[in-house]
Nucleic acid binder design. Structure first.
Lengths: 159, 159
DNA sequence: CTATATGCAAATATTTTGCAGAATG
DNA sequence: CATTCTGCAAAATATTTGCATATAG
């Protein structure tokens, strides 16, 4: 029930926070740990729910405030799918992109060098800064594609 | 001041609505027209604001309800950037993808065949249905990149 | 005509904030 | 210790809905 020791947060995260002068409290550590343990794809509510009964319980407002800090510092980012805004750690994770199912909201991470370099040339062609582009490809996953041939899709079976 | 005659909605939209058995009222036509005229990148509030003083005025609830219908029918889709959920017509427009600036929320449309076919093979490799994938590439636009070298970015200068 | 769409106002849901007290560096 | 964080409850926003009336087909 304790898949990740509270100690081993990616060094980059701690460094970025220190550099920005924000504190790494026990609750914040818990939030970061939860994000790390869960592939990072949790909504703020799920996050708060999960931390409601933990060691130091974390309130919903704190989750909102801290996530805002994380996004501002570039440590995390939001992925909005349908109505759900999920939070994902960005710093300290290997570079990756997302495949999202528009039917159920499921997220699959992937990385493809060719796609990335092509995307890079596209953004360059449009005058965008030449950083690592974030790619999000939307489609319909196998399960939803199969379900929709019958009835509805399996949206309800996912968070 | 009347850039688009109310008559020329893409045929595909009317057909899809008829097929689904939903009505194409004057207000709905106005909403669709506004979406067409504005590159399609408007939030629900902007949409309602814009139609507040038009021929048949459209209320905010109607905008919400109708946009929901449009998304459900696959006529429109949402693009969420930062805190703003924009609505874009999908049907009756040429196939395109999005380049979004994470700093100011600006959206640039583009289309790249190579990128698309590569994305297609990626989704196929992950078991996704082999439809046209929607690609969203996030980066920082030229203006924001320049601004951030000074101070903040030009987020405030956009809606 | 009958079923659908609409406005309004009220109900919900979501996100942000003020403040007093706790905790960090 | 001074500054930053937190929880709580309340405020500000955003979204949905009930219902009487207007309209499309």
């Amino acid at each position: 029930l304790n898949p990740r020791a509270e100690a081993d947060l990616p060094e980059a995260i701690g460094a970025r926070m220190k550099q920005a002068g924000v504190r790494l409290s026990a609750r914040r550590r818990a939030v970061l740990t939860a994000l790390l343990d869960s592939q990072g794809h949790l909504s703020r509510e799920e996050l708060a729910l999960r931390l409601r009964d933990e060691r130091p319980k974390v309130s919903l407002s704190t989750v909102y405030r801290f996530v805002h800090v994380l996004v501002t510092l570039g440590i995390a980012r939001e992925i909005k799918v349908g109505d759900i805004a999920r939070v994902e750690l960005d710093l300290g994770r290997e570079n990756h992109d997302h495949l999202v199912c528009v039917a159920c909201g499921g997220i699959v991470e992937f990385h493809d060098d060719d796609l990335e370099s092509l995307a890079r040339s596209v953004i360059r062609a449009h005058g965008f800064a030449d950083g690592a582009p974030r790619i999000e490809v939307r489609g319909t996953c196998a399960v939803c594609a199969a379900s929709s041939r019958d009835a509805r899709g399996h949206r309800e079976s996912r968070g």
